[in-house]
């Protein structure tokens, strides 16, 4: 199981052919209290870089892009009632959506732990 990162602060945790996408602790901290999450619909086909979801704080709305191409297979319904999960538990309970990865080679173009840590230093 590996986790990769985009320069836009999304993470994708790879479990087989599925990727679990959310935003990093660094990103949630920069955004502040999340008040609303606009989730994609299951079955939505995304190209790498497509807008997949929107997270809103009081003063900002940020698009969440697809780190790789694929199809949305599941969404985190818990965020509808409790968007603050992204703040309190961004990497586990605050995941946003799962994607069936179309082309695993796209993962190679993303940042690994060390590179992302360097970016947000």
């Amino acid at each position: 199981m590996t986790t990769k990162f985009t320069p836009d602060h999304e993470y994708i945790r790879v479990e087989g052919s599925t990727g679990i996408v959310g935003i990093t602790p660094y990103a949630q901290n920069a955004l502040g209290d999340i008040v609303f999450v606009e989730l994609p619909s299951v079955g939505k086909v995304l190209k790498k870089g497509d807008e997949a979801a929107v997270v809103e704080s009081v003063k900002a709305a940020s698009e969440i892009y697809a780190p790789v191409a694929g199809t949305v297979s599941e969404i985190n319904e818990a965020l509808s009632g409790e968007p603050g999960l992204i703040n309190t538990d961004p990497e586990s309970g605050g995941w946003i959506y799962k994607i069936t990865i179309a082309d695993a080679s796209e993962l190679d173009g993303l940042l690994d732990d060390a590179a992302y840590a360097e970016l947000t230093k």
Binding site: V35, F36, E56, S57, V58, K59, A60, A61
Partner: peptide, 12 residues
């Protein structure tokens, strides 16, 4: 709910 509005969402 001002994230719907022009001063935040601009073209969206």
């Amino acid at each position: 709910l001002s994230t719907r509005e022009q001063h935040i969402r601009r073209e969206k």
